Lab assay of single mutants.
Amino acid sequence: LTVEVTLDGRRIELHGLSEEAHEILRHALERNADDKEIKKILEELRK
């Protein structure tokens, strides 16, 4: 799955996400998580 997010003013596409990762990010974006929170989530998903 692919998600497009804006971090530090740049639009980035995240490819190859699992369903779980996609859901976690989608929920964070829906509640307008800040860049710091999104980065933390991405860091966790990379593990």
Rank of each mutant, 00 (worst) to 15 (best):
I38G: 00
A21W: 14
R10Q: 13
H22V: 15
L1C: 04
E44L: 14
L42I: 14
L25F: 04
I38K: 01
E44T: 14
R46M: 15
G9R: 02
R31G: 06
T6C: 14
I12H: 05
K40L: 12
H22D: 05
L29Q: 04
D8E: 09
G9V: 02
E4M: 11
V5L: 11
K40P: 00
L17H: 01
H27L: 15
V3Q: 04
K36P: 06
L7G: 02
A21S: 07
A33C: 07
L45M: 10
V3I: 15
I38D: 00
K47P: 08
E37C: 04
G16S: 06
L42G: 00
T2K: 10
D35I: 09
V3T: 05
R11N: 06
A28W: 08
K39M: 14
K40A: 13
R46I: 14
D34M: 06
T6V: 14
A33N: 03
L7V: 09
R31Q: 07
R11D: 04
L17G: 01
R10I: 15
E20L: 09
H15R: 11
E43M: 15
I41A: 01
I12D: 01
E37W: 07
H22W: 15
E20T: 10
G16D: 10
I24A: 09
E4F: 13
A28I: 05
D35A: 09
G9I: 02
E30Q: 14
K36M: 13
E30I: 10
E44P: 01
K40T: 09
I38V: 06
L29H: 02
D34V: 06
L1I: 12
L42T: 01
I24T: 09
L42Q: 00
K36T: 13
E23M: 15
I24G: 03
S18M: 03
V3S: 04
L29I: 11
L25M: 04
V5D: 02
N32G: 12
L7C: 10
L42Y: 04
A28P: 00
R11M: 06
E30P: 00
E13H: 12
H27A: 14
E43R: 14
A21E: 14
A21P: 00
G16K: 04
H27G: 11
E20S: 10
E44D: 11
K47I: 15
G16R: 05
L42C: 03
H22A: 15
E19D: 10
I12G: 01
L25T: 00
T2F: 09
D34K: 07
T2V: 10
N32Y: 10
H27Q: 13
E13V: 15
L17P: 00
I41L: 09
E20P: 04
E37L: 07
T6M: 13
I12C: 10
I38P: 00
D34T: 13
K47F: 15
L42R: 00
E43Q: 12
E4S: 11
R31T: 06
E44S: 12
H27F: 08
I41D: 00
G9W: 03
H27P: 01
K39C: 07
K40Q: 12
E19S: 11
L29A: 03
D35R: 04
L14T: 03
H15W: 15
E43I: 11
H22L: 14
L25Q: 00
T2R: 10
L45S: 02
I24P: 01
I12T: 04
V5N: 02
E30Y: 10
E19I: 13
G16H: 10
A33D: 03
L17N: 01
A28D: 00
D34Q: 06
D35M: 08
L29C: 04
K47H: 13
G9T: 03
R46G: 14
G9H: 03
E37Q: 07
T2H: 07
E4K: 07
D8A: 08
E19P: 12
D8H: 08
E23T: 11
K36S: 14
K47V: 15
E37P: 00
D35H: 08
D8C: 15
E4A: 08
E43D: 11
D34C: 06
R10H: 10
D34Y: 05
H22R: 11
E37N: 03
L45W: 12
E19T: 11
D8R: 06
R46L: 15
R46C: 14
K40D: 10
L1A: 06
I41T: 01
L29Y: 05
L1E: 05
A21F: 10
K47W: 15
E23K: 14
A28F: 06
A21R: 02
L14Q: 01
N32D: 08
E37K: 04
N32P: 03
E43H: 13
D34F: 05
K47C: 14
L25I: 12
I41M: 06
I24K: 11
E43L: 15
E30G: 09
E4H: 10
R26G: 02
I41K: 01
L25G: 00
R26D: 01
E37M: 07
L17F: 06
G16Y: 07
E20C: 06
E43W: 13
E44A: 14
E19Y: 14
D34E: 08
K40Y: 12
H27E: 11
R10T: 10
R11T: 12
L25S: 00
E19G: 07
R11V: 13
E37T: 09
L17V: 05
H22K: 10
I12P: 01
I38H: 00
I38E: 00
L29T: 03
E23N: 13
D34H: 07
I12S: 02
H22Q: 09
D34I: 05
L1G: 07
R10G: 06
L45A: 04
L14K: 01
D8F: 04
T6Y: 07
L7Y: 03
R11S: 05
I38A: 00
E20F: 11
L29P: 00
L7A: 03
A33Y: 07
L42A: 01
L1H: 10
H15N: 08
T2A: 06
A33L: 08
K40R: 12
T2S: 12
K47M: 15
L1M: 10
E19R: 11
E23G: 10
D8P: 02
D35E: 14
S18D: 08
R10V: 15
I24W: 10
E19N: 11
A33M: 06
T6D: 05
L14W: 04
R31P: 01
K36F: 13
H15G: 07
G16N: 13
E30K: 12
L14Y: 06
N32V: 06
S18T: 10
K36L: 13
G9C: 05
E37I: 08
H15P: 04
L7M: 07
E37H: 05
E13I: 15
S18Y: 02
E4Q: 07
E43Y: 12
T6S: 07
E37G: 03
R26F: 05
L45C: 06
T6K: 04
L1R: 10
G9E: 03
